[in-house]
Simulated scan of single mutants.
Amino acid sequence: MRVVAIGAHPDDVEIGVGGTVHRHVALGHPVTYLIATDGTAGCERDDAARRDEAQTAASVLGVDDVRFLDFEDTDLGDGGAVVSAIESHVTDCDPDRVYVHAAADTHQDHRNCARAAVSATRRDGDVFAYETYSTRPTFSPNHYVSLSAADVEAKLEAIRIHESQTGKTYMDEETIRGLARFRGNRVEATFAEAFEVVRSIDRFDGRG
């Protein structure tokens, strides 16, 4: 199974789908990150520092293919330029599964990244939408990935790499672990990450 995980900012993938990424890598699935913006708005560190954080955090989860689209933080659109940039990389990766932001989100970059990503992956395989700190309460998960304690700890270790963001409340480790425990409780697992299914395809050709 080939996997692409798309985030608006350098820390979004770890926050939303880090445990699941760790599980994919453990199963030998190649994973690629697409990061839409440099994430420098409201941050004292420069874009090079945030890139370094993103690449190091990805490596903690076993991911070495991290691609930056270089759109402006807080001003990400959902039109043709963003769709085309995402689609180009997705076509190159030919994924069986794509993880994207949930569309119901209060952050404009997350919301627009979700819209652009869904358009860009219209010819691809399964598409699942993940939650982050700014996902709206209308998020209604109907797919779960059960996680081990090791998956959750790897996710937290990756999140710790984003030192430029550590003062923000949504980076609190107990909050992140608590959400994983809450989602796990819904499916009789110790921990889980939850997703909305944008598209799911049953295949009988041996792929995926």
Results as ranks from 00 to 15, higher is better:
Arg177Pro: 05
Ala114Ser: 15
Val83Ile: 14
Ala8Val: 08
Val21Arg: 00
Ser146Asn: 06
Glu163Leu: 07
Val17Cys: 12
Val21Ile: 07
Ser88Asn: 12
Ala8Trp: 06
Gly125Val: 06
Ala58Ser: 06
Arg160Trp: 05
Ala149Ser: 13
Val127His: 08
Ile15Asn: 00
Ser119Val: 12
Asn185Gln: 14
Tyr33Thr: 00
Phe128Ala: 04
Ser88Pro: 06
Thr169Met: 05
Ala104Gly: 15
Gly42Leu: 00
Gly79Lys: 13
Pro137Val: 09
Phe139Gly: 15
Thr91His: 13
Asp151Gly: 06
Ile86Gly: 04
Cys93Val: 13
Asp75Arg: 15
Asp75Gln: 12
Asp96Ala: 11
Gly208Leu: 12
Arg97Gln: 11
Arg177Asn: 06
Leu156Tyr: 05
Asp70Ile: 05
Thr135Ser: 15
Glu14Asn: 01
Leu147Val: 02
Pro137Gly: 12
His110Pro: 10
Ser84Gln: 15
Asp46Phe: 02
Arg23Asp: 15
Arg199Gly: 12
Arg115Tyr: 13
Ser134Arg: 09
Val4Asp: 03
Thr20Arg: 00
Thr135Lys: 10
Arg203Ile: 05
Val17Ile: 08
Pro141Phe: 00
Arg136Phe: 06
Glu153Phe: 02
Asp78Asn: 12
Leu61Asp: 06
Cys93Phe: 12
Pro95Met: 03
Ser164Tyr: 01
Val82Met: 09
Gly77Ser: 04
Leu27Asn: 09
Leu34Asn: 01
Val25Glu: 04
Phe182Cys: 11
Ala8Tyr: 10
His162Tyr: 09
